[in-house]
Write a protein that binds this DNA or RNA. Structure first.
Lengths: 243, 243
DNA sequence: CACTTTACCGCACGATCGTGCTATAAAGAA
DNA sequence: TTCTTTATAGCACGATCGTGCGGTAAAGTG
């Protein structure tokens, strides 16, 4: 047998090059050649791992979705139930530079999905997973008796929470809000969901709370070594052999 | 003087061709040639009205924003203040086929704006205008004493309403919600803002209520004949002279 | 009529696109 | 060693892109 490379690992590496191109130059700058240049490979090498451009994009889209799902389900959360809910939801929002980049990539794919049914299908799964997560969080608060008196069903509350989270995210991505304001509004909304108490650190419940998984949500283990950092931070530009 | 055409009118006609291409084939199918074919003009004719592709896109983006701003400020609203608020906000949301198309176009531009600072600037103005509109609506409810007891500022309530509106819209555009569910959730949220009463038609106030303008919001008059229907419905395909 | 100005067409250029293809390098198996 | 299989490079093809530009039709003025 000749030189063997981990195909799945290489595909992830190339997908991350797609992310960097999208984050830096916009989604309409993604081409086989630009991704090849960004990753340091040749166009011919790319075709060994993705037979078509659409396949590359679909993989990069799925991967960024998996990335946040994995982070949600592997992060340990501390604090009151309300703080846990807040921090879980913030995992999907542009709360810092890393998540801003991540969210803008996911958002770019979302727009691309308006004209690409294959991408749209992947994204609907993501939305369904996020709604299920919101519903589970709300149900958890309800079971703990922390929800303020309400007339709506928990499903209705979850739908609105989900919409608020995505709406706030879009507003930050569009430059209409900054991250602090976004977080403040999320906090304010959660403050209306539970009793009045603000972000009070009193009444803390230090035991890490279980977080309902967002989707099929396979853990960090799917053949690889665990949390090795799928982060965008691995932006090493490989140098070419020639030219 | 030779043949004179209304430049602004022609530019609008071409921008509507851009909208149709985006709605039918996706934003990445917009090129000078496809827009020329869609509008029935030649590529050379296009260049008489837009010297560059970016200029064409920017104009089409601004125009779709103006279109909803104009509709908001020219529609007469009837019903209780709460119903007025609902109907005003629904003007920007994919509540029916027409508005769905319109919203998907605006959304496509939004993603395009992530990589184009000029477009991003236009869109920030739009978001600011929409926030101001939400704030004015909330203040109107507050002045009428219709707001349920709340601890938050009206600005905070407006921010969250704005985010909910856009979040629900995105969820419909992504195929995650249908229009009815979206409207139901908007209604439910407004039901929490004001007193408990649902969408009850009792206690109606039939006098058309004034709607605070969304932006600089010039009326429908800006040199043209008024409400002549800037609608996407004017999809007449012009036949070429030859070929 | 001729003349001027605007509207419009459509070709041409160079760049870039996705993708098929061949040639070569590398690495274990025999 | 030779052979077989995989990995990678990079060229070539046809299509499409944005845009510049010259030519022609039309409409009003003199």
């Amino acid at each position: 047998m000749p030189k063997i490379v981990d195909h799945d690992l290489r595909r992830r590496e190339l997908a991350e090059a797609v992310w960097r191109v999208i984050a830096r130059d916009g989604v309409d700058q993604v081409s086989i050649r630009t991704v090849a240049a960004e990753s340091g490979w040749s166009t011919g090498a790319l075709r060994h791992y993705f037979s078509t451009r659409a396949e590359l994009l679909a993989f990069a889209c799925e991967l960024v979705i998996d990335k946040v799902a994995t982070r949600i389900s592997t992060t340990r959360y501390v604090g009151s139930p309300r703080e846990v809910v807040r921090d879980v939801l913030l995992q999907t929002m542009p709360a810092d530079a890393n998540r801003h980049t991540e969210a803008s990539i996911a958002f770019a794919f979302l727009a691309l999905g308006l004209g690409d049914p294959a991408l749209a299908r992947v994204q609907r799964l993501h939305f369904t997973g996020m709604y299920d997560l919101c519903l589970a969080l709300i149900r958890d608060l309800d079971a703990k008796g922390l929800l303020a008196p309400h007339t709506a069903t928990v499903e209705s509350l979850a739908r609105r929470l989900h919409a608020l989270v995505d709406g706030l995210s879009v507003h930050v991505l569009a430059g209409h809000l900054d991250a602090e304001e976004m977080i403040a509004q999320l906090d304010a909304y959660l403050g209306e969901l539970v009793g009045q108490p603000g972000t009070s650190r009193a009444h803390r419940m230090p035991a890490p709370t279980d977080v309902p998984s967002a989707r099929g949500a396979r853990g960090p283990e799917d053949g690889r070594t665990g949390a090795h950092g799928t982060g965008t931070s691995s932006g090493h530009r490989r140098r070419r052999k020639r030219s």
